[in-house]
Write a protein that binds this DNA or RNA. Structure first.
Lengths: 158, 158
DNA sequence: CCTTCATCGTTCGTGTACTAACAATTTAGG
DNA sequence: CCTAAATTGTTAGTACACGAACGATGAAGG
């Protein structure tokens, strides 16, 4: 085993007690948001299973299915992704044949995105999985708590 | 301007209405967690200012200040970081002279970490900033709502 | 017109985040 | 005691995340 001193510190930390600094990481929103997001990502990966979609790829596909044809930047805005991030996500989806891209005839700066046939099929297949993932993530809360939580969380994410 | 159709879709999405898929991204916890985390990170960067610390570097320093000397993996457990992630965070903190590292005399696999003098000074300087960041992140909520939110969030992050 | 300003998509650099594999240890069990 | 299992830290690979800078284009104004 490690050192006894370190173990004592670890137990103290697990119990949420403060150390020298008076700064308890477990009480800070940032830390909790990060951990909750980590947990959700793990659930996502496990539930989405064989489809091998990441959360962002999933969001982009669902959104594209909703709005039809759009430009890359616009899809980024609709999914809260940076233009640089979007670029990578789209690149991977195109290379997997789930999205088609063509130049906008009315604006030569733009690239218009649409779901390919395979993309449409993918969306149909995973739509329900999305709800299951949300359910599993919220599983520790009661029905009423879930509503409260979502309502508050939404106000912290605008 | 872009196409009218795309704009109509964008407005619809902003209003939280559903599209073809019946899957409203804005109602899914994962998406909201991601956005709230994004917002927090932005607040963190803006508030921490000149110190140039990232959230993870901040967490590692505060934790190390609490527990004193520990190994890398153990510090990772105490801050909810993967061993591979921890490795990178520590590498950067060492290269900035905020952390010292020495081999554990009782276990030759381990590396023991401590705050350097500069690290101690950094911790003293940024401790208060941490609370200010938490406050600013929770600013959209009332005092009672904040408590509720943290309590629920903690249950979703274990 | 034509010049200023904004937008589009890309690339680079830095920093999470996690899986998988690895060599070097240490620990546990027979 | 000795082998099998677990732990420690590292690396490689993939995927977000964002600031900053870029060239190309488009829009608005005088």
């Amino acid at each position: 085993m490690a050192s006894r001193a370190a173990n004592r510190a670890e137990e103290k930390v697990r119990a949420g007690q403060e150390g020298r600094s008076g700064y308890v990481l477990e009480n800070q929103v940032g830390h909790l948001l990060r951990r909750a997001h980590q947990r959700h990502t793990a659930i996502f990966q496990a539930t989405v299973g064989d489809e091998q979609l990441t959360p962002l790829q999933f969001a982009a596909l669902m959104r594209l299915s909703d709005v039809g044809e759009t430009s890359q930047n616009q899809l980024g805005r609709l999914t809260a992704m940076d233009a640089a991030t979007m670029q990578g996500v789209i690149k991977r989806l195109i290379s997997r044949g789930l999205i088609d891209r063509r130049p906008d005839p009315n604006d030569r700066r733009r690239l218009l995105l649409t779901l390919s046939a395979a993309g449409e099929k993918m969306v149909d297949g995973v739509k329900d999985i999305g709800f299951r993932i949300t359910d599993q993530t919220l599983e520790p809360l009661s029905r009423g708590e879930r509503e409260t939580f979502i309502k508050l969380l939404r106000r912290l994410s605008d």
